[in-house]
Structures are given as C-alpha cells and as structure tokens.
C-alpha cells in the first residue's frame, strides 16, 4: 500500500477548513452569546489541528510553535469572553 505523502495531510487541511465554514453557521446564527463563544472555541481547536498539518506540508517547525501560542492565546480569549458573559469568579 503506497500513499503519496504528504498528500493525506493536504486532504486533512481541506476537510478541516470545510468544517470551520460549517461551524461559522453557529457563530453567525447561534441564538445566544454563549452559543457563539462555543462555536468560536470549536473553530480555535480546528485551527490548531490545521496548523499541525501545515507544519508537515511546508516542512517548517515554526507552524507548530505558532499553533502552541495560538492555543494559549485562544484560551485567554475564551476566559475573557466568559468573564464578559457571566461575570468574574469571586
């Protein structure tokens, strides 16, 4: 069984990009603001997965470093949205 690598990673990036477009529906339509934050969180996780795969496609370590930073910064963003919606922890 011969697979032409890294083409499977390119397919992976393509499918994840389509999934991000599907999640954008919930981001735009979601009836309340917590729904929108949930959709944003899902998009952030998928973007981290895409960056892992892009590191293989372009043969660059820097994509994975950016993915780590993106994960941490998106977490901080999620925490701030949670403060904005529900008030700070006491």
């Amino acid at each position: 069984m011969i697979l032409l690598f890294p083409e499977p990673f390119e397919i992976c990036v393509l499918v994840l990009a389509v999934l991000i477009l599907v999640a954008l529906y919930r981001l735009v339509a979601g009836p309340t603001s917590p729904d929108r934050v949930v959709a944003l969180d899902a998009i952030n996780t998928l973007v981290v997965g895409i960056m892992f795969a892009l590191g293989v496609i372009f043969r660059e370590n820097i994509f994975v470093d950016v993915a780590i930073l993106y994960a941490v910064l998106s977490f901080i963003g999620t925490i701030y949205y949670a403060w904005y919606i529900g008030g700070r922890y006491t």
């Binding site: 949205y81 919606i85 529900g86």
Partner: peptide
C-alpha cells in the same frame, strides 16, 4: 468557564 458563564447569564 463557558458553562459557568452560560449558567450565570441565566440560561
């Protein structure tokens, strides 16, 4: 954090 915020906001 999101679940807690959603409950606090009244959902």
């Amino acid at each position: 954090a999101i679940a807690r915020a959603a409950y606090k906001s009244g959902q």
